[in-house]
């Protein structure tokens, strides 16, 4: 627990992080930036788990353990997404969203 900082202040930060991620995912025009926005969302949940564990239920480590798993899975997810994006880049030499809309409606 951090002295002088209440759970509400911490939660404000994580919630902001979450919604910045959602906003970024919707507005960004670049596939890599969209991936970064998703990472923000995942990290907001990681922080949430750790802080809830520390502030509310310090006797058990469930939240902390969960956060380690999220970090590992997020790394795998990012690696796969980057691999797919690189594969796309080889074909069209671009990672812009506007260039990957052959299929619509």
């Amino acid at each position: 627990m951090i002295t002088d900082i209440s759970l509400y202040e911490v939660l404000t930060v994580t919630t902001l992080l979450f919604f910045i991620g959602v906003y970024g995912f919707i507005t960004r025009k670049n596939l890599i930036s969209m991936l970064i926005s998703v990472e923000l969302i995942l990290n907001a949940s990681v922080l949430n788990f750790v802080f809830f564990n520390q502030y509310l239920y310090p006797e058990m480590l469930q939240g902390a353990i969960f956060s380690i798993f999220i970090i590992a899975v997020a790394a795998a997810e990012t690696a796969l997404a980057v691999a797919i994006i690189i594969n796309l880049y080889r074909k069209i030499s671009s990672v812009e969203v506007a260039d990957v809309e052959n299929m619509k409606y």
Binding site: S45, E77, L80, V100
Partner: peptide, 18 residues
């Protein structure tokens, strides 16, 4: 298709995690 799938899947699992 794969790009669209992995990005939406990652977003969805992130939201569910929150």
């Amino acid at each position: 298709a794969a790009v669209k799938f992995i990005l939406s899947a990652a977003l969805a699992s992130g939201v569910a995690l929150f």
